[in-house]
Every structure is written in C-alpha cells, then in structure tokens.
C-alpha cells in the first residue's frame, strides 16, 4: 500500500474539509486571513504552517500572532501586530485580507445571507445581522464555509443579501465590482468555485465518498458543472499529523462535521 492510499483510507470528512479550506488561502501571500468556524480556523493555520507562510492571523481578539497553536485555546506565539476592530475595518477596506465566512443561505451566484430569514419586517428567524459581509465582499477576497450542505443553505434566492454575489456586484457597477473577488465555497460535501463569464457557482470537486448526485440533491438549484468533477484532494500524511497532533488534538473538527 502506498502512502497516499493509506491516507485515503484514514482521512475523515472533516480533515478533507480542513485541507479544502486551507487550499482556499494557497498563494494568498502576505494578507490577513480571517476564518470563521472551527474547520476554517484549522485550515488557515495549516496553510500558514505549510504552503502559505506569509499569512497573518489574529488571536481572535486584538493581536496579530505568529506561530501555530491548537483551536479552542489561547493563541501561542509572538505578537507581531495590534489589530483592534477599527484596524481590521481599515484592513478590510485596504484590501489585503481574505475572509472565510459561514453563510446561512447561498444563492446560485454567491450572494449570501447572515442577517434574517423570511419577511424582513418580522423575520421568521433573526440571525446575526449583515456584520461586515457587505463590505468584505466588495473590498477583498471572500470565501465561504458551509458545514451542513443542504437545500436550506443553497437556495434559489437569499432573503437578505449580506454578502454580495457576482451578479449583484456586476449590476451595481465598478464601485462594487472593482475589488469584488469571490473565491471558493467549501461544504461538508464538496467545493465550489465560480464559472468565469457567468459568475455562477460551479462544482469544483466532490469529497471522497460523495457523488455529484448527492451534491445535486442537497442543493436547491441546478448545479453548474464544467466537464468531469474531480474528487477533493486528501490531506498528505504530514498535514494529517499536523491536524491531529498540533492544530486540533481535541478533535473539535468532528463537532462541526461528524466523522
């Protein structure tokens, strides 16, 4: 048995998701990487520890910290900067940031909702509010993490556009579209990118053990597929060791995506 096959048999779905999130930050260079959710947090730390060493990460409070530390605990490493919220706001508008947010709803062109479900005047479900999503999406690269891929999350139309999709950015003109840059959507089933030209969500890969049909059934609008859909890459042996022993020894990732 080769090393790759061995990893294939042992990597969990959550671990596949971790490297898919990490890969969203590959080649980003010297930018602030902000990741919401456990698996994206493990992903950006893995990316920095391995193939994207120049990324800057916060401690979740107000410091930029170097080093590699586990999720679920305090940051351990050298403080290399001060990033109170207003500094983060400045960096958002400056553009050297890539965020991975968790949307409650996503539409076929990547508009997302984190504000409210249902009638806006008296929502069926009040969520967080738009937070920084409108600004993030028109100012710097944005990716998303959907821990539970379902027809409730992937909908034909979102109820309150918080994060701006490709069609909406184009329609709003250069003020919105100039720095608009949606990158990827990683879910517990698959990875999407965006089709050049149309800006539509496109199935980029399916995770091991997931079929294209599985993704289609869990998506509330027709999938856009260009050619053969590859299987999402597996963590390398080194990455797997890093995830299990260093970044998430308590397996918090399994609470987000069951093994």
């Amino acid at each position: 048995m080769t090393g790759t096959q061995m990893v294939a048999q042992t990597a969990t779905r959550a671990e596949v998701c971790v490297v898919a999130c990490a890969d969203a930050f590959r080649g980003d260079g010297e930018i602030l990487a902000s990741a919401f959710g456990t698996i994206p947090a493990i992903g950006v730390r893995l990316a920095r520890h391995t193939f994207s060493p120049d990324l800057m990460l916060t401690d979740g409070e107000a410091y930029l910290v170097r080093g590699t530390w586990p999720v679920g605990g305090p940051a351990v490493g050298d403080v290399e900067g001060w990033s109170p919220f207003r500094t983060v706001f400045d960096l958002v508008w400056h553009g050297k940031r890539h965020v991975m947010m968790i949307p409650s709803q996503v539409d076929p062109f990547g508009s997302t909702n984190i504000s409210a479900i249902g009638d806006y005047r008296a929502p069926k479900v009040q969520l967080l509010g738009v937070r920084g999503a409108p600004g993030n999406t028109v100012y710097h690269p944005t990716s998303y993490w959907v821990p539970k891929h379902s027809t409730r999350a992937f909908v034909p139309q979102v109820d309150m556009v918080s994060g701006v999709g490709n069609d909406r950015a184009a329609a709003a003109g250069p003020g919105a579209s100039r720095h608009h840059d949606l990158r990827r959507i990683v879910t517990d089933l698959a990875v999407f990118d965006f089709q050049p030209g149309t800006g539509a969500l496109r199935l980029a890969s399916v995770h091991p053990g997931v079929s294209v049909e599985d993704v289609a059934v869990a998506t509330g609008f027709p999938l856009v597929i260009d050619g053969d859909v590859p299987v999402s890459r597996l963590p390398t042996a080194e990455e797997l060791q890093l995830i299990r022993e260093v970044l998430d020894p308590k397996s918090l990732r399994d609470k987000e995506v069951a093994p």
């Binding site: 504000s115 738009v130 409108p134 556009v161 909406r168």
Partner: peptide, 13 residues
Amino acid sequence: PTRAGLGSDVMTR
C-alpha cells in the same frame, strides 16, 4: 463615501 453596502440588500432595506 464607502464601497460597503453596494450590491447588498443594505441598500434596498
């Protein structure tokens, strides 16, 4: 002035 808000439902709401 800001770009933030453009294209989102912050404008419509």
